[in-house]
């Protein structure tokens, strides 16, 4: 396949992933529970392993449904344990995700050794491999599975944002008020969690289990430093994400290093720059 086209697909996939992650990421940060995305990503990894062991296929819709369910169940379990008041909330997250991840790793070692499920690749992501799985239609390649999955997820996130924008803002800002005026904050919360799970699942291919946290948290956190409206925060985070992804891809190409790592580090560098210059950069 044409090398240029291959690279373009790669970059496009990364861009789509970054932008798609900004949307749930913004609200997770505003809620103050952004590290739940770390817990979700480890839980989803287990979901993928379980689904794979049961169905022996990688790209089935079952995989998506199963992994998302595991993610949502984990969120629910974390909430219930926190409510029981026997452990502090951060401790619950810190115990839950290594536990789920450990089960996944052991399962892989026990039952899936023959199949190529390289743990390092899953942990660190390897965007470079994504064009390997192409969709063909009438014998024409129309892009990798990963690319089109991220297109679908981005559309899903945009639609969710349009439908739930006000509900999400009011549920995050003042939960009680939202309940009183019947804006259904719990509905907004679980919608957010569901889109987060699905987005993280889709981003696995591009970013890997750990670095997906970079895509979800860093650009919105950077935007938060210099914006005063939620709408601005969303826009700025998307712009930063695009900028960071492009720079990251370029650096990865030039230095021949991991793409996901490059992007995550670039996001971090952008955060540092914006942090230092946040006073002059602030948008009124």
């Amino acid at each position: 396949m044409n090398l240029i086209l291959l690279y373009l697909q790669l970059i496009l996939t990364a861009l789509l992933t970054g932008v798609a992650c900004c949307i749930p990421g913004t609200f997770l940060i505003l809620r103050g529970t952004s590290l739940i995305s770390d817990a979700i990503s480890h839980a989803i990894f287990l979901g993928i392993v379980l689904a794979f062991l049961l169905y022996q296929q990688f790209y089935a819709p079952i995989l998506f449904a199963g992994a998302t369910t595991v993610g949502l169940l984990t969120v629910w379990a974390i909430e219930r344990i926190i409510a029981s008041k026997r452990l502090y909330p951060d401790a619950v997250i810190g115990i839950m995700f290594p536990f789920l991840f450990s089960i996944a790793v052991i399962l892989i070692n026990l039952y899936a050794q023959n199949i190529h499920l390289d743990i390092d690749a899953v942990l660190l992501g390897e965007l470079a491999f994504t064009p390997l799985y192409q969709i063909t239609y009438n014998n024409i390649n129309i892009g990798s599975y990963c690319l089109w999955t991220m297109v679908a997820i981005l559309l899903m996130n945009i639609v969710t944002l349009i439908l739930f924008y006000r509900k999400l803002i009011i549920a995050t800002f003042d939960h009680d008020f939202a309940t009183i005026i019947k804006q259904k904050p719990n509905q907004a919360y679980w919608t957010l969690m569901t889109t987060t799970c699905i987005t993280i699942l889709g981003a696995f291919e591009s970013a890997g289990a750990i670095l997906v946290v970079a895509f979800i948290i860093t650009p919105p956190a950077t935007a938060y430093l210099i914006t005063k409206r939620t709408s601005h925060m969303l826009c700025v985070s998307i712009l930063l994400s695009i900028l960071g992804t492009l720079i990251g891809c370029f650096v990865a190409h030039v230095a021949a290093v991991s793409i996901a790592g490059s992007i995550a580090t670039t996001y971090g560098a952008l955060f540092a720059i914006v942090y230092i210059f946040r006073s002059p950069l602030r948008l009124t």
């Binding site: 505003l30 439908l163 800002f173 003042d174 005063k228 939620t230 601005h232």
Partner: peptide, 24 residues
């Protein structure tokens, strides 16, 4: 009861009182 670092303006907060009158 509220996080005052949330990125909204004074007018945005007061407008929340009208949300029930505005369809999504």
């Amino acid at each position: 009861s509220v996080d005052w670092t949330f990125p909204v303006s004074v007018q945005d907060v007061v407008m929340m009182g009208r949300y029930n009158h505005i369809s999504w």
